[in-house]
Simulated scan of single mutants.
Amino acid sequence: MTHIFAHRGSAGTHPENTMISFMEAARVEADGIELDVQLSRDGVVVVIHDETVNRTTDGTGWVGQMTYRQLRKLNANYKFKKYGFCPIPSLQEVLEWAKNTSLLINIELKNNLIPYERLEEKVIELVERYDLASRVIFSSFNHESMATCHQLAPHIETALLYMEKLHRPWSYAHTLQALALHPYHPTVNRSFVEAAHAHHLLVRPFTINKEELMKTMFQYEVDGIFTDFPEKAQNVREKTLRSL
């Protein structure tokens, strides 16, 4: 069955990458959550998508130039003002909560623009501390980082994020010892999914928000989808499975 990952939590209905968004994903019984990590100036792994705080908080500036304490003072409720004050969580805070759920956890390392020093080591250390290696997937557009993660923790799944259509991506993935492809959805069709599966790779496209596209991906039998609307995806999956 295709897993439903709540992209940045239930980002279509709640402030992205916040505890309230992840809790909503658990409430609607998503199979997993997806979140983005970077480093604060003082080396804390924080959960935020953009390299600056400008879009999703009431502050301005670069994440990597602010201390964790400074970041925590910002309100990350973004466009969902009705939820009140929503701080930027640390990865530790999310994992502390997630260990008491059954959720899969896709951790995207946001180090393709800024090469945060030792981000891989710090993230792996936290995953191990909470004994979550079997439920975690590392992904990134920085494929060098995924190779590093595999070298440091070969027992934790790595996945390659990419936007453009690739020639024989399974061959490339195998050279990096990645177990999954996380492609931009326009590059995905049924024959691609079948070929990836034939090469023993999982396929989880992003970001699947429209009902018709959800239905198509479920029919392709992809291994997972990333969506901002996990509750809607649950309903579509149920209907699609009934019709097959």
Rank of each mutant, 00 (worst) to 15 (best):
H3R: 04
H3G: 00
F5K: 02
R8M: 08
G9D: 03
G9M: 05
T13F: 13
P15T: 01
E16Q: 15
T18C: 14
T18M: 06
S21W: 07
S21F: 08
F22M: 11
F22G: 07
G32V: 11
L35P: 08
Q38W: 06
Q38N: 01
V46E: 00
V47L: 06
V47M: 04
V47C: 12
I48K: 08
E51R: 13
T52A: 00
V53H: 09
V53A: 09
R55N: 00
T56F: 02
T57K: 12
T60E: 13
T60M: 11
M66N: 03
T67A: 03
L71H: 09
N75H: 07
N75Q: 06
A76T: 08
A76C: 12
Y78M: 08
Y78V: 13
K79N: 10
C86M: 12
P89T: 06
L91G: 01
Q92P: 05
E93M: 10
W97E: 00
A98T: 06
N100G: 08
T101V: 11
L104G: 06
L104K: 15
I107A: 06
L113A: 02
P115G: 12
E117W: 14
L119N: 10
I124M: 01
V127D: 00
R129M: 10
S134Q: 11
F138G: 03
S139R: 03
S139N: 05
S140M: 12
T148A: 11
H150S: 02
A153F: 15
P154N: 06
I156M: 08
I156W: 14
A159D: 00
M163L: 15
M163Q: 14
K165L: 08
K165N: 06
R168G: 00
R168W: 09
R168P: 02
P169G: 02
S171H: 14
A173Q: 04
L176W: 05
L176I: 12
Q177W: 07
Q177L: 14
Y184S: 10
H185M: 13
T187M: 07
V188H: 10
V188S: 02
R190H: 04
R190C: 12
F192C: 01
F192L: 08
F192I: 03
A195N: 13
H197Y: 11
A198Q: 13
H199M: 02
H200L: 03
N209I: 13
E211P: 14
E212D: 09
E212T: 07
K215M: 09
M217G: 03
M217C: 12
F218H: 04
F218E: 04
Q219S: 11
Q219D: 14
E221W: 04
D223A: 08
D223T: 09
G224I: 02
I225C: 02
F226D: 01
D228E: 13
F229Y: 15
F229C: 09
E231D: 07
K232T: 10
Q234F: 07
V236R: 01
V236K: 01
V236T: 06
K239P: 00
T240Q: 15
R242N: 02
R242S: 05
S243Y: 12
